[in-house]
Amino acid sequence: MRRSSQIFDLIIGVGLIGVSGFAMLYFLVNERFEWIPEQVLELARDPEILKRPPAKKCSECHKIIYEAWKDSRHSISWTSETFIEASENRSKEKCLPCHIPQSVQGEKPSPRMDLRDEGIYCVSCHFIDNKMQGPYDLLAPPHPTFRNPDYVRSNFCGSCHQKTFKEWKATNVEDTCQDCHMPRKKSRLTQKAGFNLLHKKRWVGDHRFLHGEIKEKDVVMEPGWEENFFIISLKNQTIPHFVPTADNGDPRLYLYIKFFNEAGEEVDNAKEIIAPQQETALPYNKKMRYRYRLFDKIIKAEVQLKYQPAWSKEKSTLRTETVFR
């Protein structure tokens, strides 16, 4: 009886020591990692990580971020068919800096020579000036990570998306690129068994770099008639840059209008190509007006708005409307 009580006490004791040890470690790792001597940390360092490794290496710990990135356009910036075709088999110099950036840091990067199939990968954005950087100061034993506030600022994305950055800046809207395209949720930065428990949850951005869908509330369409003219206006009401936008890609909105007479016959039609490269994209919060002279007696117009992203030849219908006179 006495012996079993001693074993029980021992278990409780070991448990308490374990829990308080873990709590102390958790506190140290997350709050006071500067207390840990550098000599101790050296034992946990992985020098390979500081040699610009492929993304797969990063996935050993950052599984969730890696998988999100794998789903993104950034991960196929060098390998996508659209890019290969548009860049004349990757020979156009103007494409290289942003499709295979060496190091992204607020200005147009230089193209890199190695690991080109990785596209815009972990190292391009997080390994700057020979050290790992991100939105937080972190212990991260295999590689110390230093906080750089630019990771939550639009100018970081503006290194490559320069035109879009300028458009956004002109709107004076506070929401940054990351707010919309990298929405944050509380998550652990590492998924490596054991280590994940040591790291507290933080706000982590979605590394799929979401490409926002254009909804009805985003682009407001107002059709109408005026003597022998059909008028239609489009207003980008919610997206704080031009729609569509691109520095070098060619995404487009197509506005189709068909005109019908009393007999229900289509007698005329019109089309607008709304595209950044043609300087016809929709600016933020400004009504764009299109006017068509009608040569016949028209009683009805059918309007359709379609969207084609830069990387696809397919169009998706955003809106269809029939307007009677």
Binding site: N248, D250, I273, A275, Q277, Q278, E279, T280
Partner: peptide, 8 residues
């Protein structure tokens, strides 16, 4: 006007 895209 499509040539603007072509130039790009």
């Amino acid at each position: 006007m499509e040539l603007k895209s072509t130039c790009s």
